[in-house]
Design a protein around this nucleic acid. Structure first.
Length: 491
RNA sequence: GGCGGCGUACCCAAGUGGCUAAGGGAGAGGUCUGCAAAACCUUUAUGCAGCGGUUCGAAUCCGCUCGCCGCCUCCA
């Protein structure tokens, strides 16, 4: 397996630090607002990476944190005139609503910064002892800063030169810092701010220190994979490396993985620009599976331009997929009597070969730095092969069994991408709700029954009228040998 | 200004030295169908921003030009 690491800027062979155990830490969200689709991308990507590593037989421990204390949370609390922890509690709940809705599995550990204050204090104390950090007197207590120039190798992840950084610093120069790039490990609390007791008086942790403390506590002094959005490379992950490696004297993370952004009009989606869609806004309009397919159709490191058209394309793709599953189900349910002729036997052998090759191709794609886009391409290649096979209407039980096998393969590998796991019925029923179509399933069925009677009387005009009426409401009818099926029109 | 990335058909997108440049969406024609839908078949890039170079051979490596974006401040 090859994994691209931001540290080396190359794809590297993936070899865990210890046997087949993989410790994976992904930076989660700061809980002060609803999550947007960019957060969804990061969650989906690392969810799939974790699933694939497990599929590959690794014993994965996945940790994803919540930053539940920070300036923005405090500001939000002040704006809403509620307690800071009411803000974080609320948005953690909302996070789960969104992510569960999207089908993101929970991480093995989902630690919160404020549950790890003592661990952070321990790390900071050690950094003080080792001379990597210094205190600064503040009103009512002391703050602690990390001295960036004491850490040899600062900038190695983001490829930044300390001198350039300082020369180009846009940060307001803080007189109390020895160097403008130094960052807070511990902040003395101001009047009215939340605080915890520490060797430096009342205060709260800086942003970066939580990940060091929680990664080390829940995974270990060295972790295999550390991930997050590309915007965390600097300064957050750079600072994490400095703190952690200064603290342990060991390599903090073996592989650094960063997902690309979601853009709108080519610009990064972000809270500050205001050009974002929240996850819940999207889920009002599109099926969660379409959102996941949209995200996974592009390699995780490339930018994705957000658009509703793209989401609709993803829906159409899924609809194609589920139509095929539906065809398989019909075929397997009533296999043609008799046995396969020579051509049929050849087709059976061919499809069998396709299924074997699919496994290889899927793994090859995913082994290459989790190339989900390529893997999905292989799914649809297989879908076409299956459709061709079904079109041949091969006689005999053997062919029916093979069609079921094909479905099982699709489902098995789909589950690694957390895609393609519904039944065709569930897909359409979900769409009926998501698209808020003005008909119920019962009404559709009733119309289908009426139309059936008309068709038996060869009253094509009446039958076509019913079909047109339903189509106007977004429902397509498909006449098949064993009856009429309905589906939601994607448009 | 420093560092990094991107530019593949009508749209999205994979491919990063060598079989006919994956796959999805959209369009056109055909097969099937009472008619449709779905499915299948054919079709839509002698071409990979442009110009040079390296090479037996490049979308893929190198250089330059143009266009776009990201990080350097909180950010997935």
């Amino acid at each position: 397996m090859k994994v691209f690491s931001t540290m080396s800027g190359k794809k590297e062979d993936f070899v865990p630090l210890s046997g087949n155990k993989v410790g994976m830490y992904a930076c989660g969200v700061t809980v002060y607002d609803y999550c947007h689709i960019g957060h969804a991308r990061s969650a989906v990507v690392f969810d799939v990476i974790r699933r694939y590593l497990k599929y590959r037989g690794f014993d994965v421990k996945y940790v994803r944190n919540f930053t539940d204390i920070d300036d923005k949370i405090i500001r939000r609390a002040n704006e809403e005139k509620i307690a800071w922890d009411a803000v974080s509690e609320k948005y953690i709940n909302e996070y789960y609503k969104d992510m569960d809705g999207l089908g993101i599995a929970r991480a093995d550990v989902e630690p919160r910064a404020t549950d790890h204050i003592s661990e952070m204090i321990d790390v900071i104390s050690t950094l003080m002892e080792k001379g990597y950090a210094y205190e600064v007197a503040e009103e009512g207590g002391k703050s602690v800063y990390f001295a960036v120039d004491r850490f040899n190798g600062y900038g190695k992840l983001s490829k930044k030169d300390l001198d350039d950084l300082q020369a180009g610093a846009r940060v307001n120069v803080d007189e109390r810092k020895h160097s403008p790039m130094d960052f807070a490990l511990w902040k003395a609390s101001k009047e009215g701010e939340p605080w915890w007791e520490s060797p430096w008086g009342k205060g709260r942790p800086g942003w970066h220190i939580e990940c060091t403390a929680m990664a080390i506590k829940h995974i270990g002094r060295s972790i295999d994979i550390h991930g997050g959005g590309a915007d965390l490379i600097f300064p957050h992950h750079e600072n994490e490396i400095a703190q952690s490696e200064a603290y342990t004297g060991e390599q903090f993370a073996k592989y650094w993985m960063h997902n690309g952004f979601i853009t709108i009009d080519k610009e990064k989606m972000s809270k500050s620009l205001g050009n974002f869609f929240t996850i819940r806004e999207i889920l009002e309009l599109f099926d969660p599976e379409a959102v996941r397919l949209f995200i996974l159709s592009t390699h995780y490191r490339s930018p994705i331009e957000f658009s509703q058209e793209q989401l609709r394309d993803a829906e159409s793709s899924l609809d194609r997929f589920y139509s095929t599953i539906s065809r398989i189900d019909e075929y397997s349910a009533r296999p043609c009597e008799g046995s396969a002729d020579k051509r049929g036997q050849e087709a059976i052998d061919e499809l069998r070969t396709c299924l074997e090759q699919f496994r290889q191709r899927f793994e090859e794609a995913m082994d290459d730095d989790f190339n989900t886009a390529m893997a999905i391409g292989h799914f649809f290649e297989l879908v076409r092969e299956i459709n061709r096979f079904l079109d041949m209407k091969i006689k005999g039980e053997q062919a029916a069994v093979l069609a079921s096998k094909a479905k099982a393969v699709l489902n098995e590998f789909g589950s690694i991408l957390n895609l393609f796991s519904k039944t065709p019925y569930e897909w359409n029923a979900a769409l009926l709700k998501t698209k808020k179509l003005p008909v119920t399933e019962a009404e559709i069925q009733q119309q289908i029954d009426q139309r059936k009677a008309a068709r038996q009387n060869k009253d094509w005009a009446a039958a076509d009228t019913i079909r047109k009426d339903l189509e106007a409401k977004g429902i397509l009818l498909e006449d098949k040998h064993n009856g009429t099926a309905w589906k939601v029109r994607i448009s």
